[in-house]
C-alpha cells in the first residue's frame, strides 16, 4: 500500500462517508450523529473486516513501522470506524418498527458473518448486497409507502396500509437529495473497504522444490 493511499486517500474517503452519511437535507439541513447502536454495528463490521482479511491491522499498526506511519494507520482505523457507524446509521430508518427491524437485521447479519468466517471477497460482496438492499428498502420502498402526495387511489391504499400495519411502518419522507447523497456515501464506503490493506498470504513453509542441478551440487541426500 502506498503512503499516499494510507495517509491521504483512505482517511479522506472515510471522513467523507462519515460526513455525508449523517446529512439530512430539508428545512433546515441537519447532520445526524450515529446512534450508540450504530457505533456497536460499526465495531462489529470492523471485526468482520479483520476476520475476513479485508483489513489487516498489522499493516497499519505494528512495531516494525515508523511512528509516523503508525499514526497514519491509526487514523485510517479511527476514520473507518466512524464511516462504518455512519453508514449503518444512514441506512437505518428514523423511527418506528422499521428502525427496530433494520437494527436487528444488521446485528444478526454481522454476528452471522462473524460466525461464518467468509473470505475477503465474499464479505465485500455480501456487504454490497446488504447495503444496496437496505438502501432500496429505506429510501425507495418505505418512502413510497409514507409519501402523502399522489393520486386518490394511492392515498386510499396508503390509508388501508396504515390501518393494517397500525401506522408503525410510516416514516418521515426523505428529501430526494438525501437519497442521492446517501447512495454516493454508500458507494464511496464500499470503494474505501475494497481499498483497505488486505491480509497478505503467509509465506509457504511446505516443501521446497529442488531442481536436478541441486543434485549435481550435492544438495540432495544420496
Amino acid at each position: 500500500m502506498t503512503p499516499a493511499r494510507e495517509a491521504v486517500y483512505l482517511p479522506l474517503m472515510a471522513l467523507t462517508v462519515a460526513l455525508l452519511g449523517g446529512l439530512r437535507i430539508g428545512a433546515p439541513v441537519v447532520l445526524v450523529p450515529p446512534s450508540l447502536f450504530a457505533l456497536v454495528l460499526g465495531l462489529l463490521l470492523m471485526g468482520v473486516l479483520v476476520q475476513s482479511g479485508a483489513l489487516a491491522p498489522d499493516r497499519l499498526l505494528s512495531e516494525s513501522r515508523p511512528p509516523l506511519a503508525n499514526v497514519n494507520g491509526f487514523g485510517v482505523l479511527v476514520t473507518l470506524f466512524f464511516a462504518s457507524a455512519q453508514t449503518f446509521a444512514a441506512l437505518t430508518p428514523d423511527s418506528g418498527l422499521p428502525r427496530v427491524l433494520f437494527s436487528v437485521y444488521f446485528l444478526v447479519l454481522m454476528l452471522n458473518t462473524l460466525a461464518a468466517r467468509p473470505d475477503r471477497v465474499r464479505v465485500l460482496q455480501s456487504l454490497a448486497v446488504t447495503f444496496g438492499a437496505a438502501f432500496v428498502l429505506n429510501f425507495v420502498v418505505l418512502d413510497a409507502l409514507s409519501d402523502p402526495e399522489g393520486g386518490r387511489l394511492k392515498r386510499v391504499l396508503q390509508v388501508l396500509f396504515e390501518g393494517i400495519t397500525l401506522g408503525v411502518l410510516s416514516q418521515p419522507v426523505h428529501h430526494p437529495a438525501t437519497g442521492y447523497i446517501t447512495f454516493f456515501a454508500i458507494v464511496l464506503f464500499l470503494v474505501t473497504l475494497s481499498s483497505l490493506p488486505r491480509r497478505l498470504p503467509r509465506p509457504s513453509r511446505g516443501l521446497t522444490v529442488l531442481q536436478p542441478a541441486d543434485h549435481d551440487r550435492g544438495q540432495l541426500p544420496r
Binding site: 482517511p11 479522506l12 471522513l15 460526513l19 509516523l68 499514526v71 497514519n72 476514520t79
Partner: peptide, 18 residues
C-alpha cells in the same frame, strides 16, 4: 515523510471541520 505529514494534517483539519 512529506506525504504522511501532509495527509495527517489534512485528515485532522477535515475531522475537526466535520
Amino acid at each position: 515523510t512529506v506525504v504522511r505529514i501532509s495527509g495527517l494534517t489534512i485528515t485532522v483539519v477535515y475531522a475537526v471541520l466535520i
